[in-house]
Simulated scan of single mutants.
Amino acid sequence: MDSKTTHFGYQEVPLEEKAGRVAEVFDSVAARYDLMNDLMSLGIHRLWKRVALERSGVRRGHQVLDIAGGTGDLTEQFVRRVGPKGRVVLADINASMLKVGRDRLIDKGAGAHVEVVQANAEALPFPDNTFDCITIAFGLRNVTDKARALASMTRVLKPGGRLLVLEFSKPTHPVFERIYDQYSFHVLPRLGSLIANDADSYRYLAESIRMHPDQDTLKSMMETAGLERVEYTNMTGGVVALHRGLKL
């Protein structure tokens, strides 16, 4: 792969094409994204997000940015935590996902308390030192330039603020990894075909997980972006890892 190309799943594509291809995937799956998440993870994604929420340190009056927030499940919980004097911004590069998230938050009674912003994680449209906490859950692997995105997130964090990255990662046991591979490349596309009428998008999602940096590599990338005290916690045998870093 040269400097002008990047990965789209297992394919090598020109840099300028990746964002559009990722957008097509999420345009396709947006309407059934929550249902598919439940089916794909057997509902465990809710537990993973609950752990992220508890480790966010978010409290009343905080300003929170939920990047790649999609359907707004984390955003809704942050609204409850920050209270009327806090601020929560739901950001996503994909308009289809944002519409689903905004509608869902309105239905839940939280829509009036959330700012919805279409934004690219690589160039966040916020001033320096704005947010007490930034989260990106299952979104970093779809970003074209992950290092640039991490630097952008660090820039808009306040000193003392924290970034949490919840993402699929590398299973820690070889046997479990083989089982996980079978599930990802055979079961997920079939589920995608049956539920969302789109096997290709879910095949891409499985491939994008394999191309994402492993736990230690992502830790190093966060440190390079300027974050301190970076640590990660493996969940479900390393299928998912929660990385957390502070801006000092």
Rank of each mutant, 00 (worst) to 15 (best):
A95S: 10
K170L: 13
R244V: 09
V22P: 08
L42I: 02
E17N: 07
E167L: 12
G109C: 08
H212F: 15
M1H: 12
N142F: 05
L124N: 04
M235S: 03
G109S: 12
G83R: 08
A31E: 14
R55V: 07
D92G: 15
E122C: 09
L53E: 06
T172P: 00
S41V: 06
P171E: 09
G161F: 03
A206S: 13
P14V: 07
L163E: 07
L90Y: 03
D145R: 15
A110L: 03
G101Y: 00
R80E: 06
L248R: 10
A91S: 11
L42H: 10
P84Y: 12
L90V: 04
M40D: 01
R87S: 09
L157H: 01
L39K: 13
L42A: 13
L164M: 00
L42T: 07
M211S: 14
P14W: 12
L242H: 10
K170R: 14
R46C: 02
R229E: 15
K247R: 14
A110M: 13
F26V: 05
E231G: 12
A119T: 06
A123C: 02
E54P: 03
L105F: 13
H113I: 00
V114E: 03
R32K: 14
V240D: 01
V156C: 13
L150E: 02
T154K: 09
R190T: 03
R21P: 03
R60D: 11
G61P: 06
Q182N: 09
V116M: 00
G57E: 13
D107C: 10
M211A: 14
P84H: 11
L191C: 05
D132C: 04
V25I: 15
E167P: 10
K146W: 02
S3R: 07
D128I: 00
V58G: 07
I93M: 13
